[in-house]
């Protein structure tokens, strides 16, 4: 144990675009969920007919939606530009046999089947796979959200671009999807916060502070 620590050094893992998009996503998801719940079942907050409470709530929702969409797009672009911990390959461990082995080991740790916590420089295999699903949900949210938004102006560029979505979903089905995926993402957030707490304790790589600083404690190669 002691000799492990002696070899530790601070490795720069999360580059600036990874950390910035992480926090923009987090902030916009919080704002989008809160305003989205209000839009879905509003309370009577307006005192007079000339108030604009719902108008502002929707404005904040749409603004946060644009911020979120740009952030998700930037992160996907960085999957092809960033370091190996940011690359798309990291998020699909299932495509390599080594990745599948790591996936199985980590799964066994989470289900108490073994006691060896995963030790990864980047994401552990289960987390990385979960993020690929989460990004899929992000894309579903952005597409259904902007499709609903574009309906205020049929024939506009956004409405035309979203044409396949209107064929794929009934209007109410699109709303229901947009609503349910929000709850799935809320479930993910609970899972995510729990898992970083667990891994920060068990893995001792400083994973929580790494998303602020970009550095993790990593053993030097011998």
């Amino acid at each position: 144990m002691a000799d492990h620590k002696a070899c530790l050094y601070e490795k720069y893992v999360w580059e600036v675009p990874v950390r910035v998009t992480h926090w923009v996503n987090m902030l916009s998801i919080v704002v989008l969920a809160v305003t989205g719940i209000i839009i879905g079942s509003p309370r009577t907050l307006g005192l007079s007919g000339s108030d604009y409470v719902m108008g502002w709530v929707r404005f904040v929702h749409f603004t946060a939606a644009y911020a979120f969409a740009v952030s998700v797009a930037a992160r996907i672009w960085w999957m092809f530009r960033g370091n190996r911990y940011a690359r798309w390959r990291e998020f699909f461990p299932v495509i390599s046999s080594g990745g599948r082995a790591r996936l199985w080991e980590t799964f066994k740790y989470y289900t108490f089947l073994n006691k060896k916590a995963p030790h990864e420089v980047g994401h552990n295999a289960v987390a990385a796979s979960a993020y690929s699903l989460v990004f899929l949900l992000y894309i579903v949210m952005a597409l259904t959200g902007f499709s609903l938004y574009a309906e205020h102006r049929p024939g506009s560029l956004m409405h035309v671009v979203m044409t396949p979505l209107y064929t794929l979903f009934s209007n109410q089905g699109m709303r229901l999807t947009h609503h349910m995926v929000m709850w799935l993402l809320i479930g993910f957030v609970i899972n995510h916060i729990y898992s970083i707490w667990l891994m920060d304790i068990k893995e001792r790589g400083g994973v929580v502070s790494s998303i602020f600083s970009g550095y993790k404690a990593v053993q030097r190669k011998e």
Binding site: H4, K5, L8, K11, Y110, F112, K115, K116, A117, P118, H119, E120, V121, I190, N191, Y194, S195, W197, L198, I201, K202, E203, R204, G205, K216, A217, V218, Q219, R220, K221
Partner: peptide, 21 residues
């Protein structure tokens, strides 16, 4: 996850080698 956390917190003998480059 709450239950998982309680079990994890009281579980002895978890080990990690730390991430290796």
């Amino acid at each position: 996850f709450g239950v998982h956390g309680v079990v994890s917190a009281f579980r002895k003998g978890d080990e990690s080698e730390g991430a290796k480059e």
